[in-house]
Amino acid sequence: MVTKRVRVGLAAAGVASIGLLFPAVALAEDGAPASSADSTASSGDTADPREERRESRKERMEERQGELAASLAEELGVSEDKVKAALEKIRGEKQEERKAEREERLSERLEKAVSEGKLTQEQADAVLEAAKEGVLPGGRGGGPGRAHG
């Protein structure tokens, strides 16, 4: 009985720690596709130091998540693939929640700007659509690249 409680506690702690780490991965993934860093490195051009750090963080994060999944799988007596699938499912759900929250906050700000006469409804709709498509700085992931000014 105590062993089962310990396992459940470890699983909960593992899931919670992954939940705290996902935003960092999301920011790293949203900066640029991994293939662009690979193509830059292979073409002989010097890569952007920020992109290199982002890529390095992403690799370390993936390594830690793999280790965590292996540990959880062993502790819970389930396959590592099953743990990884569960963690990916949770990550996807959390990313969708955060995206919906960002869009809602933006929509509220745009509605206020329209009501104050700072934007037309057409402009607000265009901004919201651009944000949904990831065209604006800080688009898909928010975070780095926010508009300056």
Rank of each mutant, 00 (worst) to 15 (best):
G143V: 08
S43D: 12
V15M: 06
E55T: 14
G31W: 13
L87W: 00
L110D: 00
A37P: 03
L110R: 09
L119K: 00
S17P: 01
V127R: 07
R102F: 00
L119W: 00
A86Y: 10
E116D: 11
A12G: 01
A126M: 08
P23N: 00
E122I: 01
E93R: 14
E116M: 09
G31F: 15
Q95Y: 00
G145R: 09
A13S: 03
E62D: 07
R5I: 08
E62M: 11
I18N: 13
S115G: 10
D38I: 08
E97Y: 04
S56T: 05
Q95L: 06
D125H: 00
S79I: 00
F22R: 07
L21N: 14
A24Y: 14
V78N: 03
A28H: 07
T40L: 07
E103S: 07
K112G: 13
R53F: 15
L72T: 02
G77D: 02
V135R: 06
H148T: 09
L106K: 01
S35I: 11
A131F: 09
L87F: 08
E111G: 11
E97T: 13
T3C: 08
D125T: 11
P144F: 11
S42T: 09
L20F: 14
A73Y: 02
R5Y: 12
R5Q: 09
I90Y: 15
I18K: 06
V6S: 10
K82P: 05
S56E: 04
V78G: 06
Q95F: 07
G145E: 06
P137E: 04
E75K: 05
S43R: 07
E129D: 05
A100P: 05
R57G: 09
E129G: 00
R102A: 02
L10I: 15
R102S: 00
K118V: 09
P49L: 12
K118H: 11
I18W: 14
A16K: 04
G14H: 05
A41D: 12
E108L: 05
K112W: 11
G143S: 15
T40P: 01
E75R: 15
E52T: 15
G145N: 10
E75S: 12
R109L: 13
S107R: 13
G92K: 00
I90V: 13
E88F: 03
E59A: 14
Q121W: 00
D30N: 09
R102Q: 05
D38E: 07
A70M: 02
P33S: 14
V135A: 08
A126L: 05
V25A: 15
A100M: 05
A12E: 12
A86P: 01
V25G: 12
M1T: 10
E80W: 01
A24K: 06
S79A: 15
L136E: 04
A16D: 10
S39H: 04
L76Q: 02
D48C: 04
G19N: 11
V135G: 01
E122S: 15
